[in-house]
Write a protein that binds this DNA or RNA. Structure first.
Lengths: 257, 257
DNA sequence: AAAATAGTGTCTATAAGACATTATAGA
DNA sequence: TCTATAATGTCTTATAGACACTATTTT
């Protein structure tokens, strides 16, 4: 029941944001080869001793104010930390509070995850203020002792992104509009290492069949000719794009519903 | 960036909860027949003119305090509204805030959904306080003008429950441990009307096959004999239970991963 | 030729979907 | 005999999964 009470207006709701990106590193070698991809997360460090966890790395965050939505606050955070101002997918993960989660007192947190293309983060260091900002391999970040309960929050955000990776087409947030089968495959595996498939079958499963819409389709130029790329190999590879079909899957019928 | 500021501690975070149940109504007639099932949601009405929306129906809600978790607050709400104190599945849906959502000022809300078995709600009226409490057919509730933005919150909670219904075994929250195929089918259809399958194929898809684990399995008594019920029909029907297998589905391979 | 990725082809078991039919029990 | 649900059976066809093989381009 909503008790009758007089409200003291709080200053704003804390918002923390796990900013994920996939970094590609081209392997050295005499031949063109597939880049290494690693899932990274952006962390910040505040050294001021006025902070509760001085010197600890933490998820970036701040206070939403009463003149903005929570999502707007998340975008503002993203902008402040990375100077990224473009169309970026941001998902609300969860809201947490439990007694003692912040030594300063009553402090809930609304956690968001942002999925950012690597290219958008090129000028990362340049655009942030005096605080330290860096990208970490996700495994490394999970192994660090982060400020507050940010290890838990990061774990939750990661689980969310993993689940989304398998059930939606967020893979596109980490890929250019046109991509090769192996790039897509690699992005999925980067986020969900357990995923493993025969590439040939993988591809066949994604293209349209007689009874099923395709998740992806061949990219064709204006002339109607198939588009290819040789960025990953000497032999040019067909480019694909997502078809726009977003299947809704179900455990109760093996098809879509 | 977390600004350095002094915190005024808020009173607590508002929590609203959409309490869903499926009500069965046995159809009159000379022969035993499948009960009608309807998805219902619990709403409350506060008439005090001190309220912001006096006389409007609303999702039950209240303030979490700094000595409890948000989930505990949701369970407390559930208990206060329905006197249900048992194992009930509660899911956090989302947290909302935008300027102007509450005329009284800065007022976010953490929204939960609870899935409650009908039997638990038998003594509903008896156990609540002076405020009006009632169950509404979901369609009816969506058609009403609810207090605040509760129409939106309800819609979100419903969408969440529908998605979960198709991708997890929450159907069990609305069923006894042992159920017939048609009961399960009916529960799913009650929540997701678009779902439609040939019952024979539906059943075959849920049982184990040579290459796939079963979602459900035949219920057998201690003597090893198949358990049946005649609650829906004159001819006894086989009872089933969920096997405990929770498939994780993916759009990238038609099997599970 | 070597290296690396790209792409094709084929075979088989299986299960999905459509549909028809039979069974059971009580009124 | 009627009503309602329960249960079984069958046929066809697509396709998932396994695996082997060929192709292309640059160094």
């Amino acid at each position: 029941m909503k008790p009758t009470k007089t409200y003291r207006t709080p200053d704003g709701l804390p918002v923390d944001i796990a900013i994920f990106t996939i970094r590609s590193r081209t392997k050295p070698g005499n031949y063109k080869t597939l880049a290494d991809r690693r899932l990274n997360v952006l962390l910040v460090r505040r050294s001021r001793s006025s902070e509760a966890y001085p010197g600890y790395w933490a998820l970036p965050g701040g206070f939403s104010d009463e003149n903005e939505t929570l999502l707007e606050a998340a975008y503002r955070e993203l902008k402040e930390e990375t100077n990224v101002d473009r169309e970026v997918r941001i998902e609300q993960i969860k809201t947490v509070y439990y007694p003692g989660r912040d030594p300063r007192g009553w402090m809930p947190s609304v956690v968001y995850a942002a999925l950012v293309k690597e290219e958008y983060l090129l000028n990362l260091a340049a655009d942030t203020d005096a605080d330290e900002v860096a990208l970490f391999d996700i495994e490394e970040a999970l192994g660090m002792k982060l400020a507050f309960d940010h290890n838990d929050l990061l774990k939750d955000a990661l689980a969310f992104v993993r689940a989304q990776m398998m059930t939606t087409t967020i893979a596109k947030e980490f890929l250019p509009d046109e991509f090769t089968i192996r790039e897509l495959y690699q992005v999925i595996r980067t986020v969900v290492p357990g995923f493993e498939e025969d590439i040939a079958n993988f591809k066949r499963n994604l293209l349209a069949t007689k009874t099923r819409q395709g998740l992806i389709e061949e990219a064709r130029g204006e002339d109607g000719k198939p588009m290819t790329t040789d960025r990953n190999s000497n032999r040019p590879a067909q480019l694909y794009r997502f078809s726009g079909y977003e299947p809704r899957i179900s455990i109760y019928n093996s098809g879509m519903f």
